[in-house]
């Protein structure tokens, strides 16, 4: 049995230690917001936070997450949307939407580190794939989220 702290709830799971965190979240715990896109850490659809850091959960063994605080898209979606989600709605970012949980998790971890990012910072840090090509809107939404968080000094 492995003990996991997911979205501030404790779970005990009976899985092989090398099972990727992604599949524990999706199939064992039933948190389906985190998506499978490539399984090889190349697309970011599976991004979650481990102790506040964005990680690609498809390539992160569950044993490595024991003793950490894991946060998924469900964990940042309370009654109130957070500024990233709000900005995503205001800029009407998602199309198929499949990549967007991972995008939002990657961006929220990134903005926590860098509250007023330049275009270069954004391009260097957000490397997730969106097959629908929502990148132009993602760029705008990141700027807007930064502004909503009050990080922009103008």
């Amino acid at each position: 049995m492995l003990r996991l702290d997911i979205n501030s709830e404790l779970h005990e799971v009976d899985v092989e230690e090398d099972t990727p965190l992604l599949w524990v979240l999706r199939d064992t715990i039933g948190l389906k917001g985190t998506k499978f896109g490539c399984g090889v850490a190349a697309c970011g659809a599976c991004t979650v936070h481990v102790d506040g850091e964005a990680v690609r959960s498809c390539s992160y063994p569950v044993s490595g997450a024991v003793g950490t605080k894991i946060t998924t898209i469900e964990g940042i979606s309370g009654e109130m949307l957070n500024p990233v989600q709000l900005a995503w709605i205001q800029e009407q970012v998602p199309q198929c939407g499949y990549c967007q949980s991972g995008m939002i998790m990657a961006v929220s971890a990134f903005l926590a580190e860098n509250s007023n990012p330049s275009d270069e910072d954004i391009a260097d840090s957000i490397t997730n794939i969106c097959r629908c090509g929502t990148y132009p809107r993602i760029k705008r939404a990141i700027k807007r989220a930064a502004a909503l968080q009050g990080g922009v000094q103008e």
Binding site: G33, K35, F36, E74, L81, W88, I89, P94, G97
Partner: peptide, 16 residues
């Protein structure tokens, strides 16, 4: 878009 709120909070249900 009517489907966007569910696509920012992880509740949108895809085939998988």
């Amino acid at each position: 878009r009517l489907d966007i709120p569910s696509k920012v909070d992880g509740t949108a249900e895809f085939g998988v």
